[in-house]
Each structure stands twice: as structure tokens, then as C-alpha cells.
Amino acid sequence: MAKIVTLEQRILKKNSEVAAENRRCFDEHGAFVVSLASSPGSGKTSLLEVALGRLRQEVAVGVIEGDVQTDNDARRIEALGLPAVQVVTNGTCHLDAQMVQGALEHVPFGQVELLFIENVGNLVCPASYDLGEHLRVVVASVTEGEDKPLKYPAMFRRSHALVLNKIDLLPYLRYDMKAARAMALQVNPTLKIFETSCVTGEGVGEFCEWILEQMARNHAA
């Protein structure tokens, strides 16, 4: 006779459990953790380089870098004299909670109050994996067009902030900023939107202020 075994299990339950462990670890060490996701080449590492220059004046910062191959990004952060841990996924198109957990033993907690996790460049899979971070930021550069949020809704819906990067290129593009903002808010009405250029530094200060505000709010809670 056929028997039905009821499971009612979340398929990503294991990831959620490890993410909760990561979050506990961050909270125990008093570290506020912000993840960055985007398509490849939208400027996550460049944004970090510029933002960290400002943020390090206020708080102790560190970075976990996720890439399919190379430790180029971790070396860019280390070149600023800041702690960076590289996670090489060897083909996997996203970070999961377990990979982040594996990197945590190399993070000098105690010397890091604000930790960034830069995900693999990909707007699809990273959306499904909670890493235990407090804040999720998605970066989209203006050269990618206005409609990324509609094309990759899961990522934009699950993010707290959107950084529209490379605005120094706007004079050379047919890019409708108003439409881009409207499309992003259509998918996620609570999304906080920043316009930045890592070349001129425009808008990065505002982004940093917001991160520090969120950090203070988290510590107060």
C-alpha cells in the first residue's frame, strides 16, 4: 500500500540553520555585517574600496570576498591595509552560509566592527541563500540598463538597499534614472536607493552614512 510520509521541510533549511549560526557569531562579536550582490563588473569591489576609505575613519572594517576564481579582490582590499578573507567557490555561482562560516575563523573579530561580504557576481542564485548578514545591498551599474530589478526580482526584493553605480557615465548613456528608480520600487517599495560614482566619489558618502545609521540602529536594538 502506498504510504505518504509528511515532511514539510524547507529545502534550504540547512542553509538557514547555518546562517542563523553565522548571525549569532556576528552578534556575539558585535560585528555588523553587510552583503553586496550584483551582476559581474557592476563595481562592488570599487564601491568597497571607496566606501571603506570613509568608513574606516569611523569604525573598524573588514571584508569577505567571494569569487569563482582568483584572490584578486581580497588583494585589492588588503592593499588598503584592511583585513580581507577570500572565498574561492571553484565554480559555484553564489556564496552559501556554509562557505561564509568556513571563512569566519580567518576574520579577526574584535578588530572588525563592520564586515562586508561581497558575493559572487550573479543576480540570480545569491538571492536564495541567507548568509546571516544584517543588511543586503544590491549594486546595479547604469550601463546595465534600467530594468534589472524587473528581470531579477528576487534579488531586488530581498535587498534593503540598491546602489546605482557608475553615474559618472550618465552623459554617455541613454539611461532614464527616473524609470530605473520606479522599476526598482515597483519590485520593492521599501528599497533605499543610492546613486554613486566610484570615480568621482559622488553619492558614496551618503551610502556610508546610511550604513553607519543602520549599524547604530542594530546595536541599539
Binding site: K3, I4, L7, E8, Q9, I11
Partner: peptide, 8 residues
Amino acid sequence: LHLCNIEV
């Protein structure tokens, strides 16, 4: 994204 049940 749930695995509801298995029929065996």
C-alpha cells in the same frame, strides 16, 4: 520552497 511529503 518546501518538500511537503513523499509517497512511498
